[in-house]
Design a protein around this nucleic acid. Sequence first.
DNA 1: TTGAAAGCGTTACCAT
DNA 2: ATGGTAACGCTTTCAA
Lengths: 342, 342
Amino acid sequence: MKLKEFASQLGLSPTTVSRALSGYPEVSEKTRKRVAEEAVRLGYRPNINAVRLVTGRAGAIGVIMGRTGEFHFAEFMSGMAERLDGEDIDILVSPTADRDATDEISLYNRLVTSGRVDAVIVHSPKPNDERIALLHGLGFPFLVHGRSETDVPHAWIDIDNESAIRRATSHLIDLGHRRIAMINGRHGRTFSLHRDKGYRDALQERGIPFDPRLVAHDHFTDELGFRYSRSFLEQSPRPTAFVAGSMMTALGIYRAVRSRGLVVGKDVSVIAHDDVFPYLTAENMVPSLSATRSSMRAAGARSADLVLQLLGGRPAEEIHELWTVELILRESTGPAPAEAQS
Amino acid sequence: MKLKEFASQLGLSPTTVSRALSGYPEVSEKTRKRVAEEAVRLGYRPNINAVRLVTGRAGAIGVIMGRTGEFHFAEFMSGMAERLDGEDIDILVSPTADRDATDEISLYNRLVTSGRVDAVIVHSPKPNDERIALLHGLGFPFLVHGRSETDVPHAWIDIDNESAIRRATSHLIDLGHRRIAMINGRHGRTFSLHRDKGYRDALQERGIPFDPRLVAHDHFTDELGFRYSRSFLEQSPRPTAFVAGSMMTALGIYRAVRSRGLVVGKDVSVIAHDDVFPYLTAENMVPSLSATRSSMRAAGARSADLVLQLLGGRPAEEIHELWTVELILRESTGPAPAEAQS
DNA sequence: TTGAAAGCGTTACCAT
DNA sequence: ATGGTAACGCTTTCAA
């Protein structure tokens, strides 16, 4: 059923029907109501592609998914979906990225210039992120999930990684730990740098020298968590505590600690960052995992919300949101073992 | 840059340019080449929404994401994205589902009648799935990831869950296990039923009575894996082996077994289904996890491929693909403990 | 092999 | 408060 046909069945003009359905104020309440009811009854729905053509709006928010199946991603998107429910906006996942940087840029370029999305969300930015420069240059609406150090004014939402890791590290120091290892995220990403800074500042405040041999940067997988922590534990003196970037990393650390005949929470303390997954819970680990905690799903929902505001005309430079991260202490952290105290 | 403007810069008509870019045969090779080069040079790209309106194609495949942040989902989509790279087709994730069944149906209805997608992928079907009936009724192209028992002819791709679990269970029986617990997926989903059947058939073949107290159906989370296995282990006699639906479930089982002072691979054997995640590896667990194994990412890639074929005109009733599942034995499975043998 | 012109189904401007 | 009509940018007959 097309607008013309539908309108003539109602004895109205296409114009009036269109206005009634789009909620324009100048249409009478009575008419609006009748149109709405008949639309449902007769099953009329505007052709989305015609609407898109004429309005220039795509009705979708773009997300570019990295090649590496990030487990965070599904949670974030699920949060977006939650918020976008009821709005007439979809999530468009663009095939591929992460081959090399040039490619990624051209991918963003194609996506935004193709008119398939009204805005995009940029994940895991670098301090000087090319994607941000590109999008700003194109004058295209975007929200950064994470932070950069660019001068370009833009909308962003982020968690306070630096403070979270500083507190986590300080707490370990309070417990008497001196050799604290850190398994961080990928090199060059701002969130990794922030976590590095929080870690180093905490050490420095207490006069503990920074030892680069206790720090790793990589993807968040159980395997890498295992490998790095295993190799750190082979050092002498060995670290008595770990700060880790993800739940998966923590799983690897737990394994490594056990494999050395050590006990988490006693011989080795562990704090990891928990994005709050429904399928893997810090509290349920054995021993339960102390964690810096912030819901990825909530971030996704709020991101969608902010993008909506952006599209609604709110200035990008006004949209900056920094979320506090909880530090939840559980059984995986305890006093540094006596023999390890120097 | 619009077609008209671009065409006039080339000294050609819009018609010819359009044909050249769309690869129509009647345009001369020389012209086609020139048009293609100039398009790149001048940065002309057809307005996607105009194309969509006039062709009636949406250029997107729809996926409906459940409310529960399924960790499988990201891998599947990532596989889709991999295959769709280079094609001019996006993945459209539709906000929400999983509230109640009626709602989900109306959601599918809206999605496909809205013209935003050319096809949809249906996940985790039930034997008599309303979504399949709906889509078939609407004559809308779709691919089912999983199987149903409906008479409606349709395209599907699935793994051989029944055979996988039968082999897994049989193997445990070969090892002397008699009390084998099963932590399966959600009630009512075909894949859960297939796994149930594989499990029961294996028992029956060897004359082992089926005990409903050893079976659970639920979401795949570490917490539920822990809770069910914990409660099973409290039975007397306790089960000596577990068959589990996911890696997360397996994590929970490992914890529960340890919490009882038992040892996986010795006191209790475990086989779980592994969808092959980059961030959590069966081989790396301690002890390494025996698993039925099939790559979710590969399924996603192949699904995208099959949808493309479907849209290319291949009849749906011709598209049935059943993937064999590997059974990989590692350290989590061993002979039933002597004292437990009856 | 190329071009002119008629749609595709809406929205939004300008009238009334 | 309602209606006529010109876009929106492209593809696709129909002609040449």
